[in-house]
Design a protein around this nucleic acid. Structure first.
Lengths: 127, 127
DNA sequence: CGGTATCCCCCATGATACTG
DNA sequence: CAGTATCATGGGGGATACCG
């Protein structure tokens, strides 16, 4: 595993492949799914219950996308009726740290951001 | 500034406010703009040239959104003709580390991800 | 239970034209 | 130079219905 220490300068260069990847992994539902699967393997309807606002279609699409990118694993359990279990992969686990850093940043700076929003909105609206 | 060290467990809980914030900051063009403004303050058309595929409209929208969230600053320079300079704010600078960690992750694991994609596509298509 | 298939709509984005 | 205004479009996502 490579280090996660901060790069000297200018690593913040987002190439198209990066951009595409981030779109597939940080999209509307992926982080919620990831959060669930980091806690425990889950079946399709477990995830639906855990994320009540997601539709079948979107959940399926999200899981397929994550599976394609090697982030989650899908196993069809031979039972009656059919059950399908989703699990996080080793690769998927490595994604957790970057996301935690990001979410940690959001948490820490949310107050400052809301203040900035309030200021911006106050200066624009009164027009 | 709070620490960016990794949380003990389960911080990967993305609440709706988090989700909205990430949507505003990690969207299609924001990271490119951020990358530029981290290097140097830039004027509107400098950014257009640096990011050739962005349209006027999208660039304006991106800059306004980042400004509203306190990530960038806009200054109208009194000159002929008018010039407008955009700069990263202190708050914006704090965003750099999380993004670098994320981009670093993407860099480090891109090979594994492409492999996963190839495997997935090979198993699906032959149908 | 764990999905597909279909329809539909909305809105983000792009293209183009115009302006202070 | 740095935008705003207007129009067109396409695809992501929801609602609904059906299937192995």
């Amino acid at each position: 595993m490579r280090d996660t220490s901060l790069p000297a300068r200018g690593e913040l260069t987002v190439t198209p492949p990066h951009r595409e990847l981030l779109d597939q992994i940080l999209d509307k539902w992926s982080l919620a799914v990831l959060g669930e699967l980091c806690e425990r393997p889950s079946r399709f309807n477990d995830l639906r219950r855990a994320i009540p606002t997601v539709t079948q279609k979107s959940l399926t699409a999200t899981l397929r996308r994550l599976e394609r990118n090697g982030i989650v694993e899908r196993e069809v359990l031979r039972s009656r009726p059919v059950a399908v279990e989703y699990r996080i992969t080793p690769l998927g686990k490595t994604l957790r740290h970057p996301v935690d850093v990001l979410v940690g940043w959001a948490d820490a700076h949310m107050p400052g951001i809301e203040e900035a929003r309030a200021r911006f909105d106050a200066e624009s609206e009164p027009a």
